[in-house]
Simulated assay, not measured.
Amino acid sequence: MQVAIIAITANGARIGASLLSALPQGRLFVIEKHATDDAEPFSSGVAPLVERLWPECDGFVFIMATGIVVRAIAPLLQAKDKDPAVVVLDDAGRFAVSLLSGHLGGANELARSCAALTGSMPVVTTATDANDLPSFDMLAKENGWRIDDLSRVKVLNALLLEGREIAVVDPSGTVKTYCAGKGNLAFHADLERAIQSGAAGLLLVTNREIPPSVDRDRALVLRPVDLCLGIGCNRGTGADEIESVVSANLARLSLSLRSVKCIATARAKEDEAGLLSYAAKIGIPVVFFDSEKLNAVQVPSPPSAHAFAAIGARGVAEPAAVLAADGGTLLLEKVKNGNVTLAIAQQR
């Protein structure tokens, strides 16, 4: 976490220096007249400094009055899943206040760390933390899951605080472990039973598309990022053709694009413009495998003479998907459509 520590007094500078020594990716900024050798001096005022650093930093620790901080950051705020963590310490080092992005941004944890380092008291005001309840956005963050609609976190967290029943469908069992008996949660084996339960809210952990029978206003969908697309294509295949094949097959299997972790292919495709363009469009990384590694994977489809003649691999889509999924299960064996071959594997 890249953290900017900002102080405007001599005592704040001393507190900042003690934090800097324990934050490996920290940078200390101190107003010019109090700056020491370990600090970067500034003289332009807090607000211009913060505006400059805002895009670069994952977190901010201010050692000053909260009011100064609020006025400095207010014009820069975007959304809870985009804003950095903001923590404020008073000049005497008595309190470390988690001010902004407590959960997704990590401010609550940063406040606790600052408190432990300075001997101050952490002040965390997020309602679930204050009531010793699990938080669904933190559940997603800690497991690397994507949140379908961030506004639904607020809805379900409110139901949690009110003690109303929330039906949970999570084949992995992660939610039950994470929540450890806290909250009025009812766990169901499948979606149909959860819907029929009449619970006030619904929490789904799935890589599949959600059917129309689900009331999306009261449902929070968390997406495990566990699908790997193995893609092979002829030289010069366009991004639109690749997208069409992927979209059609995801829809056929009711799988969500939001659960796709990566595209996997042969090393020979490192300069395949259409494939790289498609990956950039959907914001998913591409991983490449040498032909030797591809050939070492046992797959259900027969060897491809065309692929072997072109790049020395007996196949691309299936072995690449399996390798990217750490030996996971093939949900879609190789299909060929036009210039594209596709296989989909689910990570273990």
Score class of each variant (00 low, 15 high):
58 D>H: 08
160 L>F: 02
171 P>M: 02
30 V>C: 02
125 T>K: 02
141 K>Y: 08
59 G>R: 01
139 L>W: 13
167 A>Y: 06
167 A>S: 10
197 S>W: 12
208 R>S: 14
129 D>I: 09
229 L>F: 09
198 G>R: 13
219 A>M: 11
9 T>E: 05
236 G>E: 14
271 D>V: 04
21 S>H: 05
15 I>P: 00
20 L>D: 04
214 V>G: 06
54 W>R: 10
312 G>V: 08
87 V>S: 04
261 K>F: 08
260 V>A: 11
26 G>W: 01
181 G>N: 13
197 S>H: 12
186 A>M: 12
40 E>R: 06
269 K>C: 08
91 D>Q: 03
280 A>Y: 07
129 D>E: 15
214 V>K: 01
168 V>A: 06
9 T>A: 04
63 I>G: 06
56 E>N: 11
45 G>C: 11
1 M>T: 03
257 L>N: 11
196 Q>C: 07
194 A>K: 00
308 F>P: 01
195 I>V: 14
310 A>Y: 00
168 V>W: 05
253 L>C: 01
135 S>A: 15
187 F>H: 14
58 D>Y: 01
202 L>W: 09
21 S>F: 00
130 A>W: 09
121 M>L: 07
75 P>A: 07
87 V>N: 01
318 E>N: 12
38 D>A: 15
159 L>E: 01
125 T>E: 02
139 L>P: 13
12 G>P: 02
238 G>A: 09
164 R>A: 10
87 V>A: 03
150 L>T: 05
73 I>Q: 07
135 S>R: 13
165 E>G: 13
107 A>V: 09
33 K>A: 09
234 N>V: 06
10 A>C: 01
104 L>K: 09
270 E>P: 00
11 N>C: 03
21 S>Y: 00
176 K>M: 15
110 L>G: 01
99 L>K: 05
202 L>P: 07
154 K>R: 11
311 I>R: 10
215 D>A: 12
86 V>A: 06
5 I>P: 00
6 I>T: 08
232 G>L: 06
57 C>D: 03
314 R>C: 10
71 R>S: 11
229 L>R: 09
293 K>Y: 13
139 L>Y: 15
243 E>A: 14
40 E>A: 04
101 S>L: 08
128 T>Q: 02
62 F>C: 05
173 G>C: 11
42 F>E: 08
80 K>F: 02
261 K>S: 15
273 A>C: 03
